[in-house]
Design a protein around this nucleic acid. Structure first.
Length: 609
RNA sequence: GGUCCUGUAGCUCAACUGGAUAGAGCAGCGGCCUUCUAAGCCGCAGGUUGUGGGUUCGAGCCCCGCCAGGAUCACCA
């Protein structure tokens, strides 16, 4: 059984690490007659200021060797050099044993990676565990905004990462298509819509419906102000406002299956779906299976009623149904309102049940903001109480909010950053920047706009995904996202340069498939190979930690390394033929890893830019 | 108030889950295009890791207290 660990110990090191830990364990046994498991041997990549590739920390073994750190390290080092052919030499600094691995080993490692186009990916097979990843999960009353962007990018990326780590993945979306929110938009449209449609207004459907949601709020506020001016208290006014009553009435009619209400509901939701489809497509995210709250909430209600019959839940005097979670250290949680209608939690129970009926899920992953930590804690317990043994195994991929310089986005203050506007704005900046640099002369307009799109989305996605998902992040709409430095376009640019070199090499009639060449790689070349060979472990690490940021930061480090190599070493102009072909292998492999890594972030790399 | 999260350079973020002298980018200053794409490369400057204790060979990371910010504890979603 595969374990989906949220925080497993997984160091991003290369294969050699396994070998060395094994050999160190053997050495300890031979030298000091102690049994140390190879997994317990501590290693790390040698810091750049010291000579070596891998470093063994020897402090833990001093009590076995009964000698000082330097002497202990030296003894282990000598034993390793004598017994392990891959280890050429060693040096000791304080309690750190630095081991130098032969360049022959590294060249072979590169050649292994070079031969695999999707190096770093592990393919799922029939026995692989299935993860279902829920993300996006929008309400259908307004367009997507910056917060949704972080959610969508994380959800898509973590799905791709899990796939690359050898899991089967089903991407899913629960659309909150029913409830008071959409009724508000419906009410305002009836009152003030004059039969507007996306066609008649030229507006994207989700924006049109969103405008009526805003309109509703205006009507509602005006009514409250009016009622208060007529002597009502704020509470009375909020209760009596005709618009709110109207929206509530629509909700009741909807639940009662009123034909006209359902028709309008379906129509306006369809407008929103058409709008969302465009946004999702532009964002480059997709789903394998979509659930609708309107189709799951009744299932949830039945489950709650079953739980009530079985004595798991309790009914209060007013008819509402509650779960008592005081034994779990939590409060009471409402599951059905006194009028029998369901709440968010009810719907989530129903959706979960349907999902497990539809798929053989080993791990359910919910990509939902950390403001809902409590909700998922409760959901997990409730599913468990209802007898779904998978309940306690659900994973809430809890991510931090996106904040603006003056705090959270507030629709009332008009500070919401719209997803469509943001992407469009990014494309515009990409176009301007590209035109200034003037490198795309001679391309058709279609080719150019495709490149602008890739760069713009690369910048946006990388900007968001490079941040640790758990952390609150800041977005300043006043400053457009950079294209220089630690950015998506910087990485894309390196990829484009690599492809340019490879094209030129092909044009020169070169072929660089051969192996077993006698090469003396330079320091930068070895650094680059080491970086490349850690990629599979980086993929696992990002999967185990649910962190696309791990991939993003790796891509940046890799590219930085390559750019130094590119700057310092001639490739096509190298006179030694074997050295030249080796550098082409190195270049091509780096390009593959960049492309594969960025793909895990949902970022495409243009061949030229 | 209870629970949980966060605090690292002027700003945005890293730090391989307890390891060596805490690293990048942006902003600032200074170099490098007749040579494989300068969206690049190199250098300078920038830090009491919020704060006070503790644990140990070793703490940005673990424990306790305090300070600051945020989330949540709804018959909202």
């Amino acid at each position: 059984m595969f374990i989906f660990a949220a925080h497993s110990k997984n160091h991003s090191k290369m294969n050699i690490d396994l070998l060395i830990r094994n050999e160190v364990a053997k050495a300890l046994n031979a030298l000091y007659a102690v049994e140390i498991k190879s997994e317990e041997v501590q290693t790390q990549m040698t810091r750049k200021e010291f000579e070596g590739d891998l470093t063994v920390v020897v402090f833990p073994y001093l009590r076995h060797s009964k000698k000082g750190p330097e002497q202990t390290a030296a003894e282990i080092g000598e034993h390793l050099v004598a017994n392990v052919s891959e280890i050429e030499k060693f040096n000791v600094v304080k309690g750190f044993l630095n081991l130098l691995v032969s360049s022959k080993y590294w060249i072979n490692e590169l050649y292994q990676a070079f031969q695999i186009d999707d190096f770093g990916y592990r393919n799922a097979n029939n026995e692989s565990p299935l993860a279902m990843v829920e993300y996006s999960s929008p309400n259908t009353n307004k367009p997507l905004h910056l917060g949704h962007i972080r959610n969508n990018l994380l959800g898509y990326s973590i799905s791709e990462i899990l796939k690359a780590d050898g899991k089967k993945v089903v991407k899913t979306n629960i659309v909150n298509d029913r409830g008071i929110h959409i009724c508000k938009s419906m009410y305002a449209w009836i009152q003030a819509g004059k039969n507007d449609t996306p066609e008649s207004t030229g507006l994207k459907g989700d924006h049109l419906v969103g405008n009526y949601y805003v309109k509703f709020d205006q009507i509602y506020k005006a009514e409250i102000a009016d009622l208060i001016s007529k002597g009502k208290t704020k509470e009375e006014a909020e209760k009596e406002a005709p618009s709110m009553a109207g929206a509530r009435e629509l909700l009741l009619k909807w639940e009662a299956n009123d034909a006209e209400t359902r028709k309008l509901w379906a129509k306006m939701n369809q407008w929103v779906y058409d709008g969302f489809d465009i946004t999702y497509k532009n964002m480059g995210v997709d789903f394998d299976k979509i659930y609708y709250e309107s189709e799951t909430y009744l299932v949830g209600r039945d489950e709650v009623l079953r739980g009530l019959e079985e004595g798991i839940f309790e009914r209060h005097d007013d008819g509402s149904v509650w779960a008592n979670l005081e034994n779990e250290g939590l409060d009471q949680k409402i599951l059905l309102r006194s009028d029998g209608t369901s709440v968010y939690m009810t719907q989530d129970i129903g959706t979960a049940k349907l999902r497990y009926e539809d798929f053989k899920i080993d791990k359910m992953v919910y990509v939902v903001g950390n403001e809902q930590n409590y909700h998922f804690q409760v959901l997990s317990i409730l599913l468990d109480k209802l007898g779904f043994e998978w309940g306690k195994n659900l994973y809430h991929f809890s991510y931090g909010m996106v904040e603006l310089p003056n705090g959270k986005m507030k629709s009332r203050e008009g500070t919401v950053v719209d997803a469509d506007d943001l992407m469009e704005g990014m494309i515009k900046v990409a176009k301007e920047t590209s035109e200034e640099l003037g490198k795309l002369d001679g391309f058709t307009d279609d080719e150019k706009s495709e490149i602008y799109r890739k760069i713009a989305l690369g910048a946006l996605k990388y900007f968001i995904l490079k941040v640790d998902p758990k952390k609150t992040m800041l977005f300043n709409p006043e400053e457009s996202i950079d294209f220089n430095g630690n950015t998506g376009p910087f990485i894309q640019y390196t990829y484009a340069r690599i492809q340019s070199v490879l094209r030129k090499a092909s044009d020169m009639g070169l072929s660089w498939q051969q192996t077993g060449m006698a090469i003396e790689p330079g320091a930068k070349e070895l650094e680059l190979i080491k970086k490349i060979t850690t990629f599979p472990e980086v993929v696992s690490e990002s999967a185990n930690n649910f962190s696309p940021a791990v991939i993003a930061n790796y891509c940046y480090d890799l590219v930085k390394e390559y750019n130094q190599f590119y700057h310092d070493y001639p490739i096509l102009k190298e006179e030694n033929e074997a050295q030249k072909l080796f550098r082409l292998q190195l270049t091509q492999t780096t390009g593959n890893v960049i492309r594969n890594g960025m793909a895990l972030l949902g970022i495409e790399c243009p061949e030229r830019m």
